[in-house]
Computed example of a mutant assay.
Amino acid sequence: MSRIFVAATLLCIAIVVVLKPTAGMAQDFDGNVVSREVREMMDRGLSFLVEAQSDSGHWNDMGEAGAGTTALGLLSLLASGENPNFGKYQMAARKAIRHMISTQDAESGFMGPSMYHHGFALLALAEAYGQVDEDRLWNGSEAVNRRGIGTALELGVRCAITSQKSNPRGGWRYSPGAIDADTSVSGAVMMGLLAARNAGIEVPDEVIDRVLDYFVSMTSDDGVVAYAGGLDGFGESIARSSITCLVLAIARRKDLPQYKATETYLRNHLNQRSAWTEYARYYQAQALFQADIEAWKKWNEGLVRTLKSRQNADGSFRGNMGAANNTSLSLLALALNYRLLPIYER
């Protein structure tokens, strides 16, 4: 046996030893090892979503069928680490995208039934844009409105901008023609716009600046964020403070005092209860991840334990927002462990 052969054999063994995952660990994404229990929860949850998806590609959750519910399911599929063009969720992802595009208003670009849904739809299309092979998107489909993802995204952005122009508050409410705003709906639309901008879609600076001014006006010195109207609106909410903290972080305005205030509030109220627990966790996970990676890691350990106890035998998660929404929001809170969606980049 030659020395070269022996050396090569030892080198291969060494590589295998180094690359062998630690017991209890699973896939490695960009240097980040995802635990086996997270991967198993994700796989079971995604299996439930694929099974619950309609033939047309949407999810009808407690009667709330719309672009937002479909978008959350699509985001969960895209966050899984599976290739959206060739992986095991490719058909489910394509069906969801096709449904969102084919039901979009071809003139206004609105993806309803509310601006809440529209905001999440913008986010999902922006995350799919560039990841999903558009040559394969409509293959075998007979949908009438065969727009590409980029075209649908541009239409959706235009809808949000048109809606904002008629809104004196600079944000959004449920209807595209609303003249009032709330921080929850505005947060959903703003995250969609920021994701679209990251994907290369033109979003004017003045549009972003108006929304930021709105959030600043709704944030108190102690990090409490009002719901609607003004600073006296609806008391404390970990969800709203998390939304504002996240929006300011993704918009790269951590220099604002309102960012520091909401970040401090978030750190000091990590276990605050919410009437909409899954929704709050979805934003809390992202905001904390953007604020302090070490604090997020510690909080995430508790999140994994909590969600493991709340996952049903069929892979869905318990909660008060319907099985599909509960499952999608829970999976997306876990998806920070993967860090694959562009919007999750720090």
Results as ranks from 00 to 15, higher is better:
232 D>K: 13
292 D>W: 01
240 R>K: 14
250 I>G: 07
46 L>S: 03
256 L>C: 08
333 A>C: 05
138 W>S: 06
341 L>H: 11
121 A>W: 02
290 Q>W: 02
149 I>F: 03
191 M>Q: 10
103 T>A: 09
295 A>Q: 15
72 L>A: 08
41 M>K: 01
274 S>D: 13
167 N>D: 10
105 D>A: 06
169 R>E: 14
19 L>G: 03
338 Y>E: 10
264 T>I: 04
135 D>W: 00
230 G>L: 02
19 L>T: 04
36 R>K: 07
19 L>I: 05
344 Y>G: 12
282 Y>W: 13
285 A>G: 11
294 E>R: 12
18 V>Y: 12
213 D>Y: 04
107 E>L: 09
295 A>G: 15
293 I>Y: 11
168 P>Y: 03
128 A>T: 13
310 R>A: 15
103 T>H: 09
238 I>Y: 00
72 L>G: 06
47 S>M: 03
250 I>Y: 07
175 S>K: 02
108 S>R: 01
195 A>T: 10
311 Q>F: 04
158 R>N: 12
108 S>V: 00
135 D>Q: 01
120 F>Y: 15
91 M>Q: 15
223 G>T: 01
36 R>H: 08
107 E>M: 10
125 L>C: 13
45 G>N: 03
209 D>N: 03
270 L>E: 13
150 G>W: 00
135 D>F: 00
199 A>K: 12
14 A>V: 01
12 C>L: 11
224 V>K: 12
63 G>A: 11
286 Q>S: 02
156 G>H: 01
261 A>I: 08
189 V>S: 06
322 G>T: 05
327 T>G: 10
126 A>G: 09
50 V>L: 12
111 M>W: 03
294 E>G: 07
260 K>F: 02
168 P>M: 04
8 A>K: 01
129 Y>I: 08
23 A>W: 09
101 I>S: 01
42 M>P: 02
65 A>D: 14
57 G>R: 06
58 H>T: 08
